[in-house]
């Protein structure tokens, strides 16, 4: 089974352009974690802050381009992993080890094509 682990955190914690000591700390942890995952990690990336986001909305067949993320929320999608796991229990065990520096959430989503 393939799963996406979506990392939601309050991005304000990392500063306006995600630079500085906190981001260095978390990136270091992610690199160590990716190493630990080895072949079970199929992909993944950290994302720049939502002010850099552009959203294309389709409404009644019409596409419009907007500044910012799709929805305003207290926690934003800040990065993701694509992993291979035997089942949900293994995916949960991996997701529990995803490094976080603050309150937040990891959403586990099975991929449409397992």
């Amino acid at each position: 089974m393939k799963y996406a682990l979506l990392i939601y955190e309050d991005e304000a914690f990392y500063g306006p352009d995600k630079s500085g000591s906190k981001i260095e700390e978390i990136v270091g942890k992610h690199m160590a974690f990716a190493q630990e995952l080895g072949a079970r990690r199929l992909g993944g990336a950290g994302l720049k802050s939502t002010p850099s986001a552009t959203t294309i909305r389709t409404s009644a067949g019409k596409k419009t381009v907007h500044d910012g993320p799709f929805a305003e929320a207290r926690e934003q999608l800040g990065g993701f992993y694509l992993i291979e796991a035997a089942d949900l229990d293994e995916a949960i065990a991996i997701a529990k080890k995803v490094p976080v520096l603050q309150d937040g959430a990891i959403e586990i989503r099975p991929l449409l094509q397992p």
Binding site: A86, D87, D89, A93, P114
Partner: peptide, 14 residues
């Protein structure tokens, strides 16, 4: 079914 909840007894660590 979709999330693949395992059809096994939980492993000792869980």
């Amino acid at each position: 079914a979709d999330a693949a909840v395992p059809f096994e007894l939980p492993a000792p660590e869980y």
